[in-house]
Simulated scan of single mutants.
Amino acid sequence: MQNPSQETLNNWNKNPKYWKLGLFYYNKEDQRLLVDKPNPNYGTTFNFAHKKSYLFLLLIFSFFGFIVYMVTRNQ
């Protein structure tokens, strides 16, 4: 589905079947990588049905792992 309407995006965002454990968004129809959480005060999350989300998580964990390694290697 290309360029879904704002109404469709809102329905996807509020539908609990796309939220696993209330925290993880998983919707194969939605092509967005980053998705706003239902409560706008909580920011955004990854769409875990999107293949690139796992790559981004791997990069983030690798970066912080490298930082921890560099800080603790001389101690």
Rank of each mutant, 00 (worst) to 15 (best):
L57K: 02
D36F: 05
F24Q: 06
Y26C: 05
H50P: 07
F63G: 05
G22Q: 10
K51R: 15
I67E: 02
G43Y: 04
A49V: 02
S53A: 11
L9S: 03
T8C: 00
E29T: 07
Y18E: 08
Y25H: 04
L33G: 04
L57D: 01
K28L: 07
S62T: 15
N13H: 01
D36K: 12
L34F: 15
I60N: 03
H50F: 06
Y69R: 08
P4I: 05
N27S: 09
F66H: 08
P4A: 06
S5M: 06
Q6W: 00
L57E: 01
N41S: 13
A49I: 01
F64N: 02
H50I: 07
Y42R: 13
N10D: 15
K14Y: 03
G22W: 09
M1A: 14
M1T: 06
F48D: 01
K37E: 04
K52M: 15
V71E: 02
K20F: 13
N13V: 04
L57W: 08
L55T: 13
Q6T: 12
N11Y: 00
Y42V: 03
Q6L: 12
K52Y: 14
K51V: 11
N3F: 12
N3M: 12
Y26N: 09
M1F: 09
T44W: 11
K28Y: 02
H50Y: 05
G22A: 11
Y54Q: 03
K28I: 04
T72R: 09
W12K: 05
Q2P: 00
L9P: 01
Q31P: 04
F46A: 08
W12E: 12
L21F: 13
F63W: 10
N10F: 04
K20W: 10
Q75L: 11
V71H: 01
Y25T: 02
T45M: 10
N41Q: 14
F63M: 10
V68Y: 08
Q75S: 10
V35C: 01
Q31K: 15
P38S: 04
N27D: 02
K28R: 12
G65C: 07
G43D: 10
P40G: 06
L59V: 14
F46C: 03
R73A: 10
L23W: 07
G22H: 07
Y18D: 06
K20S: 09
P40S: 08
N3S: 15
Y69E: 00
